[in-house]
Amino acid sequence: MQDNSSPFKLAIIGFGAVGQGVARVVQSVPHLEVVAIADSKGVALTPDLEDVLARKRKGKSIANSDLTALDVIRTVDHDVVVEVTPTNIENGEPGLTHFREALKNKRNVVTSNKGPLVAAFGELTELARAQGVALRYEATVGGAMPIINLIRDTLAGTQVLGIRGVLNGTCNYILTRMAEEALEYDQVLSEAQDMGIAEADPTYDVAGIDTACKVVILANAFFNRQVTFADVNVIGIEQITQDALQLARQRGFMVKLIGDVQELTVAPKLIPLGHPLNVSGTLNAASILTDTAGEITVAGKGAGSIETASAILSDILSLMRERD
């Protein structure tokens, strides 16, 4: 046990929207210290957070050293690697290497990056266990909506029988707008791209890949499975017509893209209008079926820089409490 007045030290690896969100939210927390920030171009050591955020906004380099992200993980003294590089579902890199190096160097990992967990969940959790450090990934599923820690901590003692939900805000936004405004898919997609809700290449979201990654993470975490992306049967939302949504609405249904963890499926489903999973806009929602607590449904903001950072912060704070 360490002296609990000593600061809890973080390195932020990856400085896109989520990394910047983390830099903002940790500033208000006492005893938390960011010792390094790495983006794809360089590393800032003992950064002044306001200054680094301002530089990033202006498109300037944040680097003040010659170190690389891996150098930081290996050599700079810190407790937690906040790994928030972009998700790569092909091979998990560069995140996977960062995860492995962090765990080998006995550093806790807190992440929003799904890639490494989808590619090598079993290996990484085993490595963390063997090294006596934690791997926390609340921010990978549902953004600000609590689900992983909710099941692990609050629902400890119940057996989880099933989890399913609306796990991608982009798809939910598109389907909601199509149904409510009677607009066609292509039109709403362009609108979502203009608003920054959908990527220029929207495939990762609209083809159901992102939802499938979340299904994989939850299946491995709570159903003792060893599954990867290839094990999930995935149907996206690209074929859905505005007419179909109107026909469904006339009979009291909405269409939502549902990830089902137990079934390992991602598919659009008809949801009765009054159903708890019928959330609109970019919201996410998940229902957890348990043996003793029945069905529990949570909803919240599934994406966004500050929202995702809030989930990362909750993981960091829980590690800090465990240290103290």
Partner: peptide, 13 residues
Amino acid sequence: LLVIVPIDEGGLS
């Protein structure tokens, strides 16, 4: 054809 079934068909409960 794309088939969209009700959520509780073979669902959680």
